[in-house]
Design a protein around this nucleic acid. Structure first.
Lengths: 353, 353
DNA sequence: TTGAAAGCGCTAACAT
DNA sequence: ATGTTAGCGCTTTCAA
């Protein structure tokens, strides 16, 4: 159908092998022929057939990325920065948005195996670890993003969620808040970590969550955060000891919580301060600009890309690497009783990774 | 390295061909062997090698998508819905974010050709049409998204930008605005179409843009819309006839414009009404909830996916299909002088496509 | 209904 | 420094 090495070889009265060697910059080719071949290749606009190449080398120069929701800025940003990094090394990226559905994720993992991607990068919506075992069986290197799994010693890149919770909570404590509630996420590592951090920060100040001050948003999680946040905040506002601050699992949840607070006729941050997580774009333009913990999604993408490239080159899976990004908090009006605006405070409490 | 057809054949004392036929549901195989083979394939968890298959069939079951910015919700949503659609038919999707850089786009088009994607889908940042000619030479079907090119008779899916401009502008006219300004985008089809629609809607009411009431945001376009919008709006507010409404090329620009208006001590919408385009998530939670024209990104993705699947199957490029989505306007506080909230008005002026 | 032969476009090992 | 041979894992004839 298209121009092949054979065609070029005939055209130049050379053998296919010689051309192939030129293409791969093999040493034992004379400069003269090399130049001649390269020139002709460019003239004819030759494109190598990756499928043929992959068949023999076993490497596709392709990576597979699975995220729960490509529309979510956190994952979109990871996808964007990862793909930009690996593109520079000649790699392509197959991207799948699993819609948070474990079956879709499993199915696409199989697809990736069939397409023999060189590395898989997965922000998983899985509950079990079976799929990952399958990847391991096939000896394909993979990296987990954002969410971790107990008992699975895989490569991992994500934010340090304990520090996320610590940052948000100690900031609220510094603002003078006394009754800090938490709207927690579903039973995944991210939510668990943030909850832990929240507890730790309180404990460090000899405080503790009041009864009924930790409420879940339910399984809807990232998807339907706004509605879940609204409901959860309504619950909190009915508590006997009304909270004077709420640390929310993520920004959509925080938006919902803020709506509930305003609907109840309360002021933000005077009556109830709010901190979110994710640092969505346009947080500055909200009715009440939202203080939020930035998870450094671009950095996560970059680091994951570097790790993936290394894995693709080595083909050795010598021990698993774990890389925790340190989050930072961006203070805006929703929590700032001292009128501090848009001050970006780097994390100070976290241990170096 | 992994399980191949040959292994399975040996295991079952059958020939490779028979197994291959079973896999492709070829008719001339007895039910008995078919069952037997399928059972064993599942047992062994056999995965076909796509590279080998592609080498001989010439089809990779892979599509290539290029967007200017994967972080932009409009494109993220298109990517998400497209990939979901084609996934169901067993297709994978290579996604590239070109960062609005024509060179990156061109380079990745070459990559896609080398990887022999079955169809390319491109929301282009190109100025010329050379790259598209190259795709045509290789006889790879492709679809343009969002932005069109003069004199290029390619497949296209996008919103009807003239109607976008008309909807926004007539809405503002209906609200009683008399001096409606426009912050226009860069010299691409989307911006041009919206400008035309703006003019047409004014003309339909025997109005016309006042001098200096059409200002550009410059080439930064989608990227840096907020800053561009701020500047442009500042200009407008200095005009001799101050506008009482601004129709903005997109939502980020509108956010910037709103900031400029508020900074100038004016009220929205009482002094200046604002309409954006794109209908970003969380528009409801902004300082002033933003009226915006929805471009139906999910629908665009769905339709483009259907078109792509058709192209992938036919392999015939019989005439180009053009599909224009009809936009709708979502009215919020930024333009609603009659206090209408969140009313979604379907387009009434547009001809059926 | 099954299988043997040929080859997709390329690379890896081994001549020359 | 260049070419020959073989084969990656699969599908496509075509023969049995």
């Amino acid at each position: 159908m298209t121009l092949t090495l054979k065609d070029v070889a005939r055209d130049l009265s050379l053998s296919v092998v010689t051309i192939s060697k030129v293409l791969r910059d093999h040493p034992d080719i004379s400069d003269k022929t090399k130049k001649r071949v390269l020139a002709r290749l460019k003239e004819l606009n030759y494109q190598p057939n990756y499928a043929a190449r992959a068949l023999i080398t076993g490497r596709t120069l392709t990576m597979g990325l699975i995220v729960p929701d490509l529309l979510h800025p956190f994952f979109a940003n990871i996808a964007k920065s990862m793909s930009a990094e690996i593109r520079r090394q000649g790699y392509g990226m197959l991207i799948v948005s699993s819609d948070e559905e474990p079956e879709v994720e499993q199915h696409e993992i199989q697809q990736f195996l069939a397409r023999s991607v060189d590395v898989m990068i997965i922000a998983s919506s899985q509950i079990g670890t079976d799929s990952f075992r399958q990847i391991e069986e096939r000896k394909v290197p993979y990296i987990l993003l954002d969410r971790r799994f107990e008992g699975l010693s895989s490569n991992f890149v994500g934010v340090d969620d304990r520090v996320v919770g610590q940052l948000a909570t100690s900031h609220l404590i510094e603002q003078g808040c006394k009754r800090i509630a938490h709207i927690r996420g579903p039973e995944v590592s991210t939510a668990v970590g943030r909850l832990e951090g929240y507890r730790e920060a309180l404990a460090a100040h000899k405080m503790a969550p009041l009864p009924g001050h930790i409420v879940p948003i339910g399984a809807s999680g990232d998807h339907n955060g706004e509605a879940g946040g609204y409901e959860a905040a309504q619950h909190l506002l009915l508590a006997r000891k009304k909270p004077d601050a709420i640390f929310c699992f993520n920004d959509p949840v925080a938006l919902g919580a803020m709506r509930a607070i305003l609907d109840a006729g309360l002021r933000i941050p005077e009556d109830v301060a709010v901190v979110g997580c994710g640092n969505l774009a346009y947080s500055d333009f909200l009715r009440v600009p939202l203080t939020s913990v930035d998870q450094g999604s671009a950095q996560i993408g970059k680091i994951a890309a570097a790790m993936a490239l290394k894995l693709a080159q080595n083909r050795v899976q010598s021990g698993s690497k774990i890389k925790l990004i340190q989050p930072s908090i961006v203070v805006r009006a929703s929590s700032s009783r001292a009128q501090t605006k848009g001050r970006r405070v780097k994390n100070r409490t976290a241990p170096k990774p």
